[in-house]
């Protein structure tokens, strides 16, 4: 049973990765740089796996961990978006997102711990 789940997951991931790597260049990606378009789609695959943990997580700390990691991944999104579009302010969004997500996660951790915020 466990083995079957492993190989099913492996097959799904390989199919999605093959679609990302071998799709015709102009069908999904309309950017200047084809490599970065595919990289962006690959990062979306990772982020959707994080979202799976947010949906399925059996306990609240599981969801908090997944949201924390999603926050760091979004900084990566901003960095990749910065290169082909030529808009440098995307990295500003990344810095602001990293700050906000850190403060939010610390507040969430304090809340899960069951303490007041003024410590």
């Amino acid at each position: 049973m466990k083995r079957m789940r492993y190989f099913t997951g492996l097959a799904v991931i390989i199919i999605i990765a093959a679609v990302i790597l071998y799709c015709p260049a102009r069908s999904i990606i309309r950017w200047q740089s084809e490599f970065l378009g595919r990289a962006f789609l690959f990062l979306l695959l990772s982020a959707s796996m994080c979202l799976y943990r947010v949906l399925r997580g059996p306990t609240a700390p599981d969801r908090a961990v997944a949201i924390d990691m999603l926050g760091i991944l979004i900084v990566g999104f901003c960095a990749i978006l910065c290169i082909p579009t030529g808009r440098d302010w995307y990295i500003d969004i990344g810095i602001a997102w990293a700050l906000q997500s850190f403060i939010g996660i610390m507040a969430l951790a304090k809340y899960l711990e069951g303490k007041d915020f003024d410590e």
């Binding site: 700390p61 990344g94 990293a98 850190f102 610390m106 951790a109 899960l112």
Partner: peptide, 23 residues
């Protein structure tokens, strides 16, 4: 941004680990 992530990611990780044990 890189320096900031290296400094803060472990801090939030062990805050979450501690919170998970305490909850």
């Amino acid at each position: 941004c890189l320096v900031f992530i290296i400094l803060t990611a472990p801090v939030s990780a062990h805050a979450l680990a501690r919170a998970a044990y305490r909850s």
